[in-house]
C-alpha cells in the first residue's frame, strides 16, 4: 500500500524532492502537479486560521488504491503520487499534493483533474476549520 497520509503540512522541500526523484525515469516527458493550499475563508465574520484533518485511514487507503488503479486504466501514465495531510495545517500551507507523470503532456492534465476530484469525493477525509479564537466548524467541500 502506497503511503498517502503525512502528518502536518506538506513542505515545499518534500515537493521539490519528489520532482527530483523522477529525473532518473527517462521515459517521462511531462509532469503535472496539483497543490491544495489552506485558504483563509471568512465565515460569519470569523477568519479561518487552520484546518485540522482526520481520516478513516484503513478505508481511505483501500479507496486510494482503487482510485490509482482506475487512473492507470483510464490514462496512459508512467506514475502517479497522491499525498494528503493529517492533523493541523495552517492557512497558506499545502495540504494536498497530486503528482502525475506520463510520456506526453495530453494525458497528465485530465488525469490530475480526475484524481483530485476522486480524492475529494470518494476518500473519507474530514476537515475541521479552526478560527482565530479556536472555535471551529466542520468543512463542507463546495
Amino acid at each position: 500500500m502506497k503511503k498517502t497520509f503525512l502528518e502536518g503540512a506538506i513542505a515545499s522541500e518534500f515537493i521539490a524532492e519528489s520532482i527530483a526523484k523522477h529525473q532518473s525515469k527517462h521515459s517521462i516527458g511531462a509532469h503535472n502537479i496539483f497543490l491544495g493550499q489552506v485558504r483563509s475563508d471568512e465565515i460569519e465574520g470569523k477568519q479561518v486560521t487552520a484546518i485540522e484533518y482526520s481520516a478513516y485511514e484503513e478505508m481511505a487507503n483501500e479507496k486510494l488504491h482503487e482510485i490509482r488503479e482506475s487512473a492507470f486504466e483510464k490514462f496512459d501514465l508512467t506514475c502517479l503520487h497522491i499525498y494528503h495531510s493529517l492533523g493541523r495545517v495552517k492557512v497558506g500551507e499545502i495540504c494536498f499534493f497530486v503528482f502525475v507523470s506520463a510520456k506526453r503532456r495530453m494525458q497528465v492534465y485530465e488525469a490530475t483533474e480526475y484524481l483530485v476530484n476522486q480524492v475529494k469525493e470518494q476518500v473519507p477525509i474530514f476537515g475541521k476549520e479552526i478560527f482565530e479564537n479556536e472555535d471551529f466548524q466542520w468543512k463542507v467541500n463546495s
Binding site: 491544495g36 484503513e58 494528503h84 476518500v123 467541500n141
Partner: peptide, 12 residues
C-alpha cells in the same frame, strides 16, 4: 464486522 458512521467527506 467494522462499521463506520461517515459525515460528508471534505479532503483537499
Amino acid at each position: 464486522d467494522e462499521i463506520a458512521l461517515l459525515p460528508a467527506f471534505s479532503g483537499g
